[in-house]
Structure formats: structure tokens, C-alpha cells
Amino acid sequence: MILSGIWEQISTFFVDLWITVSTFFIDFGTDFAHQFYLAFIKDDRYMHLVTGLQNTLIVTFFALLLGVVLGVVVALVRSSWDKNHETMRPGIGKSLLGFFNGLCKVYLTVIRGTPVVVQIMIIFFVIMASSNNKILAGVIAFGINSGAYVAEIIRSGIMSIDGGQMEAGRSLGFNYTQTMIFIILPQAFKNVLPALANEFIVLLKETAVAGYVGLTDLTRGANIIRSITYQSFMPLIGVALIYLAMVMFFTWLVGKLERRLRSSER
């Protein structure tokens, strides 16, 4: 009884889908070129997408830089504290590290506990209320947001490296920082590369909410076209394909890097 009900719902869904798709092709199929012309060519409307793509890439790139720098610093503070606070000699160094560790924990909790849309609106409308620099607001908001996730990814990478590696580095005479730079971080980075790549993809797509503060990113570019032509299909499918192409290109790039890092060990 229940099963047949579900089956009915599923089949209805597919029938509806088929009707939608076929209606589209029947109504617009012969008219495809004209629709394309209206959405992108006429009055140089594709420029909305070009501007949007530019802004999306600028925001993503600089947010990425900010996120990685923030992430590495926070990860180093957190993992240094976690691994050493029990054995550290009491003193200024320990108190300072403890303080920064607390600060990092607050940062992680707040950023990961609130939606990025809210964060970017707070940055633009509250903190940067006197400025109208939307790109800067975007870079800061997405950078700070991404940093929290990158920090946890890199921290997991650092914690995954066997303790013997740190001991071996220290026993040669490297100090803590040198051992981190030469020995721990290169291995940690390689281990978390897939997770990092995933975070970068998320970041690229997440910038789509920048339209909330009026930043003309790729998604908002499509929305502008939509509001001019009153046609949704072309601009939305268009940007979806552009996002997809970028993500696929990036995935391919990371795959190449991963293979290269791995092959060096065989």
C-alpha cells in the first residue's frame, strides 16, 4: 500500500518532468536561437555575465588567499596548543599560546555557527557601513569564512602526521617552527589536498550569495538579464554551465597536482 503510493509519487514526478522538458522543446525548440539572442547578444547583455564572472573570480581568488593564510595560522596555533600544552613549561609563551588558542576557538565557533549570507551582510551593512566597496566586503567576508574551514582541514592534516616526525626533526636540532615548515606541513598539505580542493570549490560557488549586498557576481549577472528579458531559462542554465565548467577545470587541475605529489613517493 505505502510502497505503491511512493511509486505513484515517483512516477508522477517523472511524468511532470517529462512534460516540462518536452513542453520547453516544443515551445522554444525552434526558437532557441532567438532566445539565446535575447538573453545574451542583444544590447550586449552577455556583458552582465562577463562583469559578473570577473567579480566572482576576483572575490574567490583573494578570499582564497586570505582564507589560506588565516587557516594556516589558526591551524598552527590550535595544533601547537593541542599537542604541547601538557608538556610546556609555564611562562609567558604558554599563556600567550593559550590566549591565542582561545581566540581561534571563538573565531571558529562564530564563523562556522552562522550562515555566510548573514556574515557578508554584517560585514557590508554593519562593519563597513561607511564604505561602498562591495568587492572588498566580499573578499573579507568570504576570506574570513573560508579561513575557518581551511583551518580545521589543515589542523586535521597536521594532527594526522605521526608524532615521530616531529621528534625526528627536533632530534636533528630543528626548532619547532623549522620542523613544522620543512617536515610536518609539506606532509600535512599533501594529505589534505583533496579536502582543501573541495573547500575551494565550495568557496567559488558560495560567492553566488554576494548578490545579497548588491555585488554583481556571476549569479547576479544572470539575474539582471532575467529581469530584463523575463526569460529565466537561458541566463540561469548559462551561469550554471559556467560554474560547472570552472569547477571541472579546477578539479582537473587539482587531480594533476595530486598525481604529481603522489608519484614522487613511488
Partner: peptide, 11 residues
């Protein structure tokens, strides 16, 4: 120092 588990740098 030489360790039980070698601890060479694998990378």
C-alpha cells in the same frame, strides 16, 4: 638519535 620506528621523512 635513532628511533625504533626509523622516522625517516617520507616526502
Amino acid at each position: 638519535m635513532v628511533f625504533q620506528l626509523f622516522n625517516l621523512f617520507p616526502h
